[in-house]
Amino acid sequence: MFKYQFRWDTVFGSFDFLMSGLQMTLIVSAITLVLAMIFGLIIALFDMSPWRILRWIGITFGEIVRNTPILVQLLWVYYVLPIVFNVRIESLVALIIGLSVYQAAFISEVYRSGIQSVPKGHTEAAQVLGLSPLQSFRRIVLPQAIRMTLPPLASNFVQLIKFSSLGAVISVSEITRRGMELSASNFRPLETFTFIAVVYFFICWPLAMGIRLWERRLQSR
């Protein structure tokens, strides 16, 4: 290999600068997760609605979002929405809208499969024992469905942390963007982007491992 003089001090000298980017990454991911959970629930209710028109809207929306690239959606929200609606959209707002719509389309499937994973026999037993439909949903279906959906929701959070790096393209100052800015001034892309990759890894990997353990524990009960 060629001889390379590592200069990690150029990265650590800007540690605070990069960490403020990490803070932005985590804030964006957390806000987006909450919005996507709410929005996903609405789509899931549309998907399972007894009215055909709502089902059609929910399913069409989900298919379109799931089958187009997230980056194209982000660019669309950032550059096209302002033209169509004649409004100014901050890059941060555009990132949060784009990511939460994208994740909501996946989370709605998580909810739906969670609810449908509860065997029909469980609600029939509740019915025969005299529980009302509402009691049966609240006491029998929901607790089991939530248990099924929590690990996939947590996995979505890990995905969001990684996807939020796309914010760099529309100049949201999360950690990846900060890295681009830093390497443009210190001319040390190797150290800078390696450091950033390591930061992502040590946040996402423990989370992913924890989720795997959690899922295994749920399955064994």
């Binding site: 065997p119 026999g121 469980h122 029939e124 037993a125 509740a126 025969v128 024992l129 005299g130 529980l131 009302s132 009691q135 006491r139 029998i140 607790p143 089991q144 248990r147 009960r221």
Partner: peptide, 30 residues
């Protein structure tokens, strides 16, 4: 409703509740 009890082929116990909770759920709520 509660005068007609039923036992199913596949038991249909509620897996997220303990045995005792399975037994008291309907008496408590219904």
């Amino acid at each position: 409703r509660s005068d007609i009890g039923m036992v199913f082929q596949h038991f249909n116990l509620w897996p997220h509740m303990s045995v005792l909770e399975n037994l008291i759920e309907a008496p408590l709520r219904a």
